[in-house]
Amino acid sequence: MARRETAILVVAVVMFVYFWVSTPNFVGYNNLVTLSQFVAPIAVIGFGEVMLLTLGEIDLSSGTIFVAMPFLAERLAAHGLPLLLAIVLTVIAGGAVGAINGLITILLGLPSFITTLGTLFAIDGVLLLATNATEAGMPHGATVGTVFGIYSWSEILWALGLCVVMYIILHRSRIGLHVVATGGNRNGAAEAGVPVRRVVLWAFVMSGLLASLIGVIDAIRVGTIDPGNTGTTEMFYAVAAAIIGGTAMTGGRGTQIGAAIGAIVLGILYVGFTLRGINANAFILILGIAILVAMAVNVQLGRVSQRRGGRKKAT
C-alpha cells in the first residue's frame, strides 16, 4: 500500500515541478490558494469514498450531500440559530442521510451503487423542491466563518486534519481493521464475529458526515449556494482521486493519504491547464486517461505481489 502511495506521490511531484518551471505564476500565492480550494472538497469527499471502496461499496450521493446540506445550514441560520450550531446540526443531518444510504443497503440488501444512485436523485429532488431551484446567500459569522471557510487556507487545513483523523481511523483503530476485514473477506469477517452490517452502516454515516462538513465549509467560502449543481462532478472527482491514489474498488485496500494525493494531482492538472490557457476539455480527457492508468497500475501491482508471495488457492 505504501508503494502505491509513493507512486502517485512521485507523479504529483513531477507534475508540480513541470507546471512550476513551465508556467509563470503557478506557485504564486493566489494560485496556490485556488489549488488548495479545488483540492480540499475532492479530498474530503474522497476520504469517505475510500472507506466505502475499501468495503467494496460506493457512495454516488456524496457529491449531492455536499451540495444540498449547506442549504439546511443557511435555513437554520436564517431562522436565528447561531451559525456554529447550524453547522453542527447540518453535519449531523449529513450523517443521518448517510445512515439512510447505509440502512437501505444493508436492510434491503441492495448494491450500494443502486441505493446511492437512487438517493442521489432523491436528495437533489428534495433540494430543488425545497429551494424552488433558486440560489441563496450563505451566512458567515465573524469568528465561526473564518474557521469554516473565510480564511483562505481554512478549507485545506480542514482537509489535512480530516486526512490525519481518517488515516488513523482506517489504519490504526479497531473499526478501521474491521472495515478492511469486511471488505477483504466479508464471510470470513462475519464468521470471526465482526459486525459487518454495522461496519457498512458506519462507513455510510462517515461519508455523509464528511461530505456535509466540507460542503458547508465550501459554501461559506464561496458565499452563494446553487441548487442547480447536482454534485455529481465533485463525487466523480472524489472517486477518481481515491482510485488514482491506490484504493481498489474490489475491497480490502484503501488509503486516505493516497486519495489526498490523488485530489492534489487532479488539482494540479486542473489549475495548471487553466493557467496555461488550455481549455477544460483537455483536463477531462487527461482525467479519464489518468483513471485508466491508475487502475491498470493497481491491478498490475496486485498481480506482482501475489506472484511474489506464491499464492496458492485453498479449497
Binding site: L177, A181, E191, R253
Partner: peptide
C-alpha cells in the same frame, strides 16, 4: 477460511 487476505498474520490472529 476466515482469514482476511489483506491483513497481516497477527491482525488475523487477533481479528475481532
Amino acid at each position: 477460511l476466515a482469514l482476511i487476505p489483506q491483513l497481516s498474520v497477527y491482525h488475523n490472529l487477533f481479528l475481532n
